[in-house]
Amino acid sequence: MTPVSTPALTGAALLLRDFSLEMTGKDTPKLEAAGESVPEGTRVNVTYLGNEDLPMRRTAARSARRLGFVPVPHVSARRLGSPRDLEEFLAALRADGTGQHVFVVGGDPAHPHGPYGDSLSVIRSGLLRKYGVRGAGISGYPEGHPQIPEAALWAALDQKAAALAEEGLTGDVITQFGFDPDAVLDWIERLRERGIGLPVRVGVPGPAGVRRLLSYATRFGVGTSASIARKYGLSLTNLMGTAGPDRFIHALAERYDPAAHGEVKLHFYTFGGLGATSAWIAGFRAQEGPK
């Protein structure tokens, strides 16, 4: 029998292979409802927010696993009150079979609740490997961070990438969402120039109202100049409208060069709209797939 050749993915379809999603602990019913539109094996990040508790986080991660996805629970360093809190969480994930991959982030609190002031201290604790974690994601900020100087962000990335290797963990970099594809790709080029070869998952906001997107952008310190907003497809004169990331993804695909940028995928921030985001991705992938 002559083997059937599979068309090579190009452009936006290449970036959309093996995309990942983000959900909160409260989004479990939405994940159940959206399950059929999300490919099996999709990585689903489960947040670690202040208004969530351990049972809620465990339920969300278990649901993702039961539905055929790969759960990626978040570990929020500054929300951990003690090493015991971290061990309790990791032990619960191991017991549930949901803890092989995690995403380690500093977290929102201005002051640590315990001994972990940043994600690096969690990685270096040795507890991830002790409890069966094989890979850990870390944060990247192509458009900067409102409270952290650029030099400090780069130094932290260097240290975290090195710490993952020292701990024998695989990893990837998940970026904060943004609206400027040129800034994202320029940042990835700088990342590669620094010798960091980890896969990058570019943060993309799911389809949402313009007012809501701008609100999140302000909250997370993402630049939203008028020119960037127009490039993305946001209308600053029609805040009642909606916008999807199609322009952003197409622009990203036009400049994406695997030889220069390495392995790049997309990570969708759903902002509570997990169903709408999943449906949008399914339609966009069908449109952009091999012809």
Rank of each mutant, 00 (worst) to 15 (best):
R190V: 00
G126E: 09
G135Y: 00
T175R: 14
R247G: 02
E263P: 00
E52M: 08
V4W: 04
G132P: 08
A282Y: 01
L164Q: 04
P115R: 06
A156L: 09
T24K: 02
L31A: 06
Q287Y: 05
N238L: 06
A136I: 06
P181R: 07
P149T: 04
S76I: 04
R79F: 02
I228V: 15
P7R: 11
A286S: 14
R78D: 05
G135L: 02
A156M: 08
S63F: 00
A34K: 04
L127W: 09
A60H: 03
R78I: 06
I188L: 07
R230P: 01
E22W: 06
L86D: 04
V70G: 00
G117A: 15
D257I: 06
T277H: 07
A61F: 02
G68Y: 13
V70A: 11
V46P: 05
G289H: 15
R65K: 15
E254Y: 06
G11M: 13
W154R: 12
K30N: 13
G11Q: 14
H101F: 11
M23D: 00
R212K: 14
V4A: 14
D180Q: 11
P149Q: 07
R211T: 12
F248I: 02
P112D: 05
H113W: 06
G273M: 10
G283Y: 09
D96C: 01
L239P: 07
